[in-house]
Write a protein that binds this DNA or RNA. Structure first.
Lengths: 306, 306
DNA sequence: AAGGCGCACAACTGTTAGTTGTGCACTAAG
DNA sequence: CTTAGTGCACAACTAACAGTTGTGCGCCTT
């Protein structure tokens, strides 16, 4: 691809060869190989160089795009000034939405979003510099943050009840936590030992809910499928989660109140991380998060919201 | 890259090897080579397979994107059902704008936009099936379209005068063609023998304008630079051309009237071309082009607008 | 402690990408 | 029309590399 683009830009096999520090014959071979693989002629050879064929013209922008993507791929793991790397707790959490908003506001800042196992892993990764920031609930029970890691509360994501059309609560405009007692709530894929698990453990302990947080996670499609078909099951879902789901399956989203269980997202980062994108992210979040209110909500006692 | 993604998807070197029909050792070598090139560890090897490192997680979406782009690149020249291939007269012409609009309306139709030398080349390419459609002015003087090529007038693109701030006409709200007589109009990059050249030849012959359509084209940046700095020079530019140019250079766009010279774009295609995207394009243009009016405009006598 | 699973290392081999040397087609100048 | 020059392709050769088989080692499971 690089050779192809080089030939296009120089207009000659020989000059392209000089650019690439190889011989003209090698360029000839590479182009011939590419043309053979594609089963298409890319250049018309003239006495004064090489001109693109129509197929070559159609191919060119794709070739350039490929080189751009390859460059970004390498940059994504390049030590030094690599893209800002942010950990979120789940791809459908409110944190992902915040990152999308940040990307819209600062498209020039290259981003990589990853999902680590739990807050312990995330903090270790932050301290080592492997990631630049993390959206998590702080602090895990009995585990205060280390000195060199700072955090700031960003937002609360309210949990909503998701039910199928035949569920007993499917018609409710909203439900209180007390009303949920006795109903089976299914949360597959929650890994024991993570702060997610701790969150639901506390929710169960405080309000006597029935949460089945075990079992393998076969993906959200399978989960939604089951919820839609099973009248006795419901699940919790972040209010900002966008469901990609045909409307006719009749899934219902029902706000929970008295109190509203919320999952608090804080941003964590290493105090001395010099990445310029990190400062921009903190500024963006500070502006976006102004005016939140914790009244009437519930979060585990170990959570710091400040 | 394919190997990397295969390992991620299977979670094991061995299964990935089976998918790729190579041995486990070859997969091991490929991954080791990739990790060496990137100078980064992508997987943590465990007794039950391979898990992504943080760097690997950051790299993964880029790798997937690269494979997608590579696939599209191959598809762009694949004989058979390749993307709809459309020729436009210039990347900044109104035809490009129409194609962008078409792409917004039908994002599912893969497009390749190319620029051929002149209408002769374009017609030959249409007849051979190398391209599916072309936006051009028809018909070139004395060269009627062949039987198997159809055309339909799509729109007129009015030419505007582009001047620097010190040009004598810079302050005008609009100018008539008569007022342009005696002013030097510079159009570098117009290749003799093309229908572009014929268009300007006719314009000169009919109104006695001074158009310097010769000289090498050093790109639009150089052109705009010169226009901005040279009080004695102006140029023509399509009304829909979007200038990417700092506002403070003081370039002026001035409509031309009595009559308004327009460049007519027709769509050309081969009558028996079965590409499904072509029918969609024609329908889109028919809907978008309704209600144009040729009154008060000028185009060369050889142009067919119907 | 034993077995099995999964990846890495070593040695070998075939292919391929690169090199040098040369020829051929086309252009431009005399 | 001839001749020199330019630019790409083909041929022969070499070195490197990708893939193979064979094997070993660490870790998890039982």
């Amino acid at each position: 691809m690089r050779t192809f683009v080089a030939v296009v830009e120089t207009g000659q096999f020989q000059d392209a060869a000089a650019d690439l520090s190889i011989t003209q014959q090698a360029v000839s071979k590479r182009i011939a190989g590419l043309e053979k693989d594609l089963a298409v002629r890319l250049f018309t050879r003239t006495a004064r160089g090489a001109r693109l064929t129509i197929d070559g013209q159609a191919f060119l922008p794709h070739a350039r795009e490929l080189l751009r993507v390859a460059e970004r791929a390498v940059a994504s793991v390049l030590p030094g000034s690599r893209p800002l790397r942010v950990d979120v707790i789940a791809s459908r959490s409110a944190a992902s939405g915040l990152m999308r908003g940040f990307h819209r506001a600062h498209p020039e800042i290259e981003l990589d979003v990853v999902m680590l196992f739990d807050i312990e892993t995330a903090v270790a990764a932050i301290r080592s510099g492997a990631i630049d920031a993390s959206f998590r609930a702080v602090a895990a029970p009995g585990r205060p943050l280390p000195e060199d890691v700072e955090s700031v509360w960003v937002l609360d994501e309210a949990l909503q009840l998701l039910t199928g059309p035949a569920h007993a609560l499917a018609g409710a405009r909203s439900v209180t936590v007390a009303q949920l007692v006795g109903h089976r709530i299914w949360m597959p894929g929650i890994v024991p030992g993570t702060e997610w698990a701790a969150y639901y453990d506390d929710l169960v302990a405080e309000f006597g809910l029935t949460i089945e947080a075990t079992g393998p996670n076969f993906g959200s499609d399978a989960l939604l499928d089951t919820i839609a078909d099973t009248p006795a099951l419901a699940t919790f879902m972040g209010e900002q989660t966008r469901l990609v789901w045909p409307a006719d399956h009749g899934l219902r989203r029902i706000p929970v109140t008295d109190p509203a269980p919320v999952y608090p997202h804080s941003l964590l980062w290493r105090r001395d991380n010099p990445h310029p994108g990190l400062a921009a992210l903190r500024a963006h979040l500070a502006a976006a998060a102004a005016g939140h209110d914790a009244a009437g909500t519930w979060a585990p006692g170990w959570v710091i919201r400040s």
